[in-house]
């Protein structure tokens, strides 16, 4: 018995530990998000929250539901596989509200060379031109329709 009496202070120290553990466990139960561990060691609801972020690019399917006329021009041309927003930019806002949000006017001088300027680094089969030599400064759309850029004079493919 006296061993326990003389070791009493140790039990007090141990008691502190137990108390701290109980407090910790109680706080833990309160603080840890409810969906934690739903799919793995993370907050399950985070997946839904991330999925719920809004989009900026509407996607070409959305564009094509209205702009069927452009699709008709595009579909047989060289740019058939180029999605609308690759050139026109992100336009989900326009798709939401086509009446009040209008797409910005595009500058072909910037836009066309972004892809088609000559450089040794591009894949060899990709059509490339040096703008000054090719058109002597004329705007690209003088000869090329961007939605189907093969030259009409040369016989559109």
């Amino acid at each position: 018995m006296s061993v326990f009496k003389d070791a009493g202070h140790l039990f007090r120290f141990a008691g502190l530990f137990v108390l701290a553990f109980i407090v910790f466990w109680a706080i833990r139960g309160y603080v840890v998000p409810k969906s934690f561990g739903q799919y793995g060691h993370y907050r399950g609801n985070a997946i839904g929250e991330i999925a719920a972020r809004s989009v900026h690019f509407a996607g070409h399917d959305t564009c094509e539901t209205c702009h069927t006329d452009v699709l008709d021009v595009k579909k047989n041309g060289k740019h058939a596989h180029v999605n609308c927003e690759a050139c026109h930019g992100a336009l989900a806002k326009h798709a939401d509200d086509p009446a009040s949000v209008t797409p910005p006017k595009l500058d072909t001088a910037v836009l066309c060379v972004r892809c088609h300027a000559t450089t040794a680094a591009k894949p060899k089969g990709f059509p490339q031109v040096s703008a000054e030599e090719h058109s002597t400064g004329l705007p690209c759309e003088t000869c090329h329709q961007p939605h189907s850029p093969a030259m009409v004079a040369g016989g559109a493919k």
Binding site: S2, V3, K5, D6, A7, G8, H9, L10, R12, F13, L16
Partner: peptide
């Protein structure tokens, strides 16, 4: 810091030493 225990009998200190 004593945690309310002022037991410093020879025996308790011996236990402390061993622990």
């Amino acid at each position: 810091m004593t945690l309310g225990s002022s037991n410093i009998s020879k025996r308790s200190l011996h236990i402390d030493e061993r622990v």
